[in-house]
Amino acid sequence: MQALEYPAESANSAAEPGKWVIEAEALSKVYKMGDEEVRALDGISIAIARGEYVAIVGASGSGKSTLMNIIGLLDRPTSGVFRLAGADANSLSRDRMAQLRNREIGFVFQRFNLLPRTSAQRQVEVPLFYAGVTGQPAAARAREALERVGLSKRIHHRPDELSGGQQQRVAIARALVTNPSIILADEPTGALDSKTGAEVMALFDDLNQQGLTLIVVTHDGHVARHASRQITLSDGVVVEDTKAGAQ
């Protein structure tokens, strides 16, 4: 059994340019629907530094999810350059993309995406399985991650035994367990009431304080205000990119 079977290369190349964990240059994504072309992203250039807390906002259909999929290495751009932790998405194999998703990125979804009938601890162990960590070490790291999100007393609970807020915190623990550089969250409070939503956002603030890079897609102004930088998309183009301090 190999523990963390990835080469050290990604960590090094990420440390080398140092500052930028995400770099996009003239990024485009074009969907072809028969004769028609949909330019979901139309020449986006952004750079996000390590430790930043970024909210991506914009109207429905403006390209937020498409951008998140590319940042999350679930999809490749049609043209332009995208680098995650220094690795160029265009030159990565499918397997390598999967490895980077496992190691560098933690996903948080609007609908939690927990496995049914599976305990919190097992949920959190899932990414470790693909990192080659199993058994006792995996269990220990899963419990550690659940502790970080304040769920150490719920490790044996299954999704149907947890509230929405608790389920989302299990999902966040799952995103944290491989110690990624970035957390990507697509409408993380979309399925929660305002109180539990606020609790989740407080947890995000904590994680950002601990040095994690956070990118949150939201249409909710309250949520966006937690971020230190707000990128607004419209028709696949960045129309506004403001830092909280700069206003």
Binding site: D95, A98, Q99, R101, N102, N113, Y130
Partner: peptide
């Protein structure tokens, strides 16, 4: 399907 998507997102390769 959703489980497969989730496993993909957290790092499952084709052969996994």
């Amino acid at each position: 399907t959703k489980e497969i998507g989730l496993r993909r997102a957290v790092g499952a390769r084709d052969r996994d």
